[in-house]
Nucleic acid binder design. Sequence first.
DNA 1: ATAGGGTTAG
Length: 605
Amino acid sequence: MTRTSVLHQSLLLTQPEEPPKGPELNLRLKEQECLTILKTCKNLEEFKKVHAHVLKWGFFWNPFCASNLVATCALSHWGSMDYACSIFRQIDEPGAFDFNTLIRGFVKEVEFEEALFLYNEMFERGVEPDNFTFPALFKACAKLQALKEGMQIHGHVFKVGFECDLFVQNSLINMYGKCEKVEFASAIFKQMDQKSVASWSAIIAAHASNGLWSECLKLFGEMNNEKCWRPEESILVSVLSACTHLGALDLGKCTHGSLIRNISALNVIVETSLIDMYVKCGCLEKGLCLFRMMADKCQLTYSVMISGLAMHGQGKEALSIFSEMLREGLEPDDVVYVGVLSACSHAGLVNEGLLCFDRMKLEYRIVPTVQHYGCVVDLMGRAGMLGEALELIQSMPIQQNDVVWRSLLSASKVHHNLEIGEIAAKNLFQINSHHPSDYVLLSNMYARAQRWYDVAKIRTEMASKGLNQSPGFSLVEVARKVYKFVSQDRSHPAWDNIYEMIHQMEWQLKFEGYSPDISQVLRDVDEDEKRERLKGHSQKLAIAFALIHLSQGSPIRIARNLRMCNDCHTYTKLISVIYEREIIVRDRKRFHRFKDGTCSCRDYW
DNA sequence: ATAGGGTTAG
């Protein structure tokens, strides 16, 4: 029997033989004992015994004693908020401490609204909040994405003068980050006198989770310059996420190294982020390797791996990992199915994909979202089932959006079906979607059908709407630096060399039977000019630059903002044979891996 | 007198 339980027995099971005589001294002593035992309670039962004793001996009227009861019951892992509240309600004039502990208790129990209600009561009863009140409240606002309430309470912070408290500031940064108000978070961060690791963690996470990837990396750099902070796991995961979205493989690798050096055991979140980073930066094998070595995988790990394989056009592998996931007894959710369906679509596994779609609805009772329909339209489109795809869109029980119609439009283009292409485009424009690339696609289809009048009509329409295809660019990493090439850009310092290389490449391409596909140039210029423009597409410039600088055998990795044109696709396939290079290009949606004259997308994208 | 902030992924 432990010392505490002996104490419990002596306190609770036996009555004191006579009422204490020197009441002051004796009562204080007993009170102190109660408090000591309170700290050692291991479950609610033990706690209730102490509570009973406190009531019995009248210690409850000591505010300090009552506060401690509420705090212990509200904050211990075995505690009960209901019970804590009932004790709280017995206190005549609860102070800030009592409200604080109860608010924190509610936040701990994920009852954020309750926490805010309690603050409201605090406010109405005229109890002034202190520096301990606010962090919990801002956490509640962050979780609820309650910007209005958060800003209101932020006002109170100024009123009671805690705007310079480090903890209050950190929780404010987090709250504004979660409410998608990064500017507000930055404003607080910038005027802080001193910062802690939590401040950096909060501001970096705020940028990462709001898609401000470059700023996130910039802040990480500043943090490293300012002091020798030991890199923290959560910060490194935010950085990894930025690398993933920017396609920054080098920095991603460094972050991996930093994780291995600084964190003793990588958890599921970290390992999943690493897999995602490698796969989305073009290193599928490295991602697969980490995936295979992982001991504990969760649903998200599978999700990341499946959509990663989908992006690389490895449909069969994606499906086999999906069945592995089901064998492990993990329940697939709607996002996993987006990965599975897009894997089927990118790999041309039409029947498998349609089967998966049925199984998702019937067996797993997942209500298809627009993204699912987009994948299935893609899938049918690839197989040339354009009529069926159109029917599917028209029979969708949910609101059609631009994604599904755009899928149909691209499929019509691949299969040269102008009739359905026109329907898709008409619907796109009707729902007020006016992407320049959609106009370009339709115009290309008219051009192929030699319907010049319609081509002109579209061009006029684009001009009248002020639509311009935003300039395409390609990024390529050479010696740890990322170089950006914009189409037709001749401002690069090594332009002469690049142009010379382009010239050489074209000369060799001619022997392989390449002729420029000038239909891809939608400008009112003569054929020579069209050929010139085609030559200056950013991807070709990037490849030329990489061929000059990267050693033989190392793959060329390119990330681009737009999808590539047919000509660049054909061109790159041939370059991969002639120069015996693997060229990996990431566009908005997926990877193209050019090797030995073929592309992993099998000419459908 | 009692306590507190950042927890990251598709």
